[in-house]
Amino acid sequence: MGTPIQQLFDLTGKTALVTGGSRGLGLQIAEALGEAGAKILLTSRKAADLEEASAELQSKGIDTRWIAADASDPEQIQRVASEAMERLGQIDILVNNAGATWGAPAEDHPLEAWDKVMNLNIRSIFLMSQAVGKLSMIPRKGGRIINVASIAGLSGASSEMKFIAYGTSKGAVVNFTRTLAGEWGPYGITVNALAPGMFPSKMTKDTLEAVGADKIAAHAPLRRIGDDDDLKGAALLFASQAGKHITGQILAVDGGVSAVHG
Score class of each variant (00 low, 15 high):
V117D: 02
H245E: 08
S82G: 12
G233L: 08
M128N: 06
R45D: 01
G143C: 02
L17Q: 00
D228W: 13
L231Y: 04
S150V: 05
L127W: 14
V173N: 07
G262P: 06
G103L: 13
L236Q: 08
S150M: 02
S201K: 04
L180C: 03
G248K: 03
Q6Y: 02
I67R: 02
K141T: 07
G255A: 10
V117Q: 03
A193T: 03
R224S: 14
L50A: 01
A252N: 12
S59M: 03
I246Y: 03
N96A: 00
A55M: 01
T64S: 14
A217W: 09
M137F: 10
Q78N: 15
A259V: 11
D92Q: 14
Q58N: 00
W102S: 12
R140K: 13
S136M: 13
I151F: 01
E51T: 14
G142V: 07
S22E: 04
L135V: 11
A234S: 15
F163Y: 10
I5F: 04
L251N: 00
V174P: 01
L94S: 08
Q130K: 15
A152V: 01
A239G: 12
A104R: 06
E83I: 07
R140F: 05
G99P: 07
L222F: 09
G171W: 08
L208C: 04
A149Y: 02
S129Y: 08
E56V: 06
M128S: 11
H261L: 15
N97I: 08
P200F: 12
I151K: 01
A32I: 10
G37N: 07
A259H: 02
L120E: 06
G34H: 01
D63L: 04
G24E: 06
M198E: 09
K205L: 11
A193N: 01
I246Q: 07
A100R: 14
Q76L: 01
L94A: 10
T101H: 08
K60L: 13
S59Y: 05
P74L: 09
T190H: 04
L154N: 07
H261G: 09
P186V: 10
L57C: 05
A149T: 01
M198G: 05
A55V: 00
S82N: 12
K60V: 00
M198L: 05
G182R: 14
A32F: 01
F199T: 06
R65I: 14
S54Q: 06
L154S: 08
L120S: 03
A157T: 11
G171M: 03
L111R: 14
I40V: 12
L194I: 15
G21V: 13
S129C: 10
L194K: 12
A113F: 00
L231G: 02
L111F: 13
D73T: 11
S124F: 06
K170C: 02
W114P: 07
I62K: 05
A30T: 08
L11C: 13
S59E: 15
A32K: 09
A181F: 02
L88W: 04
S240G: 03
I146D: 02
R79G: 12
Y187R: 14
A239H: 04
D63P: 06
P221T: 10
A252L: 07
T168F: 07
E112Y: 10
I62Y: 12
T3G: 06
Q78A: 13
S44E: 02
T19G: 09
L251T: 08
A104V: 03
I164W: 03
D229Y: 12
E31A: 11
